[in-house]
Amino acid sequence: MKLKLHVWRQKDRQSTGRMVAYDAPNVNPEMSFLEMLDVVNEELTGKGEDPIAFDHDCREGICGSCSMVINGTPHGPSKGTTVCQLHMRHFTDGQDVHIEPWRAKAFPVLQDLVVDRSAFDRIIQAGGFISVNSGSAQDANNLPVAKGDADQSMDAAACIGCGACVAACKNSAAMLFAAAKISHLGLLPQGQPERRRRAINMVKQMDLEGFGNCSNQYECEAVCPKEISVGFIARMNRDYLSSSIFSKETGSASKSED
């Protein structure tokens, strides 16, 4: 089948970009979306034009590298799927396909479809961890965890940090990302000592990075390739508000405490 692609091209962070149209004449329905772009890139290189840059790595839906908005939806039309596992059989012959990078102030475009998502790392740095040094842990079975809690924690921990939630949100909010980590750790007994501090610091960092606020439209959940529930955002709100209002924890830039 044939497709008409409209792709965001931008040389580097400083340049202004634009949408450029390309023909993709040899698309096999069995290809993944990224393989379709590989083929287009091989053709572009043959013609002496710079290939389209895009982030990708594992190509099996778990590393969270791939990141593109396809016809207005992050990761494209299939539910619970990353772009790398999206197959061309979900498109129709002759279709116009618009491909854009994640759009957010906190995710500046580096080139074409490649964006800088280091803001997510800094949110984790602010508190997305349990402070335990290697070698100091007690026997794992000394700490029973209710199966339900462990399962729910795993539901939250499944986040791959791709940023589709930010890309889908009209406010470029990172609430689902932050909430997933706060909930993953907050649901476990190991995570309790730092629970309040974690919520306050991570939210603070999230705001500082320039992500927007939540309008409770749940677009994030609708596009999340791991289908993480917005129920975790409610949990984060609860943790944050109770920590802010009812505890002495004020949070701070997290510094080493060893």
Partner: peptide, 20 residues
């Protein structure tokens, strides 16, 4: 030691109903 360390870090390993 790895399992102990990972559990302490909050790795959500699969558990039985008894919590182990």
């Amino acid at each position: 030691n790895i399992i102990d360390q990972c559990v302490a870090q909050g790795v959500p390993f699969a558990r039985e109903y008894g919590g182990l």
